[in-house]
Design a binder for these strands. Sequence first.
DNA 1: ATAAATAACTTTCAATATGCAAGTAAAAAA
DNA 2: TTTTTTACTTGCATATTGAAAGTTATTTAT
Lengths: 147, 147
Amino acid sequence: MQVKNKNIFKFRSDCPISSALDLIGDKWSILIIRDLCFFGKRTFSELSLSDEKIAANILADRLKKLEEYGILTKGKSPENKKTVLYTITQKGLDFVPVILDLVLWGARHLDSHISAEAKQFAKKIKKDKDAVIMEVNKKLASTGQLR
Amino acid sequence: MQVKNKNIFKFRSDCPISSALDLIGDKWSILIIRDLCFFGKRTFSELSLSDEKIAANILADRLKKLEEYGILTKGKSPENKKTVLYTITQKGLDFVPVILDLVLWGARHLDSHISAEAKQFAKKIKKDKDAVIMEVNKKLASTGQLR
DNA sequence: ATAAATAACTTTCAATATGCAAGTAAAAAA
DNA sequence: TTTTTTACTTGCATATTGAAAGTTATTTAT
């Protein structure tokens, strides 16, 4: 097999920055959290369809790790027994401020490359970041998309 | 050779989050920015000495990329012609909010693992994040550690 | 003046991680 | 009953990482 999951998670130091990066500091984890928090995605196939085109094996590996870290939970759908639902936890939702700051950075420094919607979103964040955080929180909580 | 630098930088999408991650979404770049912004490090050897023990080849590769991205600049020391000085730019400094939010996340969710100093720092950030950002900015600007 | 250190990398090579393409199993839809 | 769909897994090629040792150009010490 490949993409073996040893998952004896080892931290490089006791620095909170490096420790957070030890968990989600790769090119995909934050995007998975983004899709759960901002785009209402909940299933493997929905998560597979992002613009960035994550490979199925990598997605499976990241979902497993994020579940182990308590950043999301894996559950069955109430509708049918084929669908698996991934749900963000509070621990995962607490990455939203980090994500919003990344949006601001991107909007400021990669302007020519960024979509118009993203620029609008950045404007909103700049105006009232806490309101955006609250809004995401409420939306997920009210639709049962938060564990 | 290895760690080849093609550096035709390719973005996975037009999302500001994924685009920012395309530049600094690895396990080391943010730590280099941290060391420049918060620990006053300026040289290759100083950056080599972090708790996380980055390998020299990786450090060289990241410094090259971060310079290409305009996140830091590379210059000669006025003191002697052996030392190379790495200096953060405004573009790099603008990652400070992201870093501070990572500190808050780590302090909240990895409490048992985090150092006492880090917890103190988190407290300060929680009290007034903007003040911390301003402080870092001023300190670097006043000591000529900002391009 | 010469030798030993130091700074800033570079090189080599083994170990991991990533990514594409194809395959599988169970459940649901046609 | 066949076809789709969902959620993955597997195999394999390629790319990245990391440890260790080596290189070159200064400085510093003797």
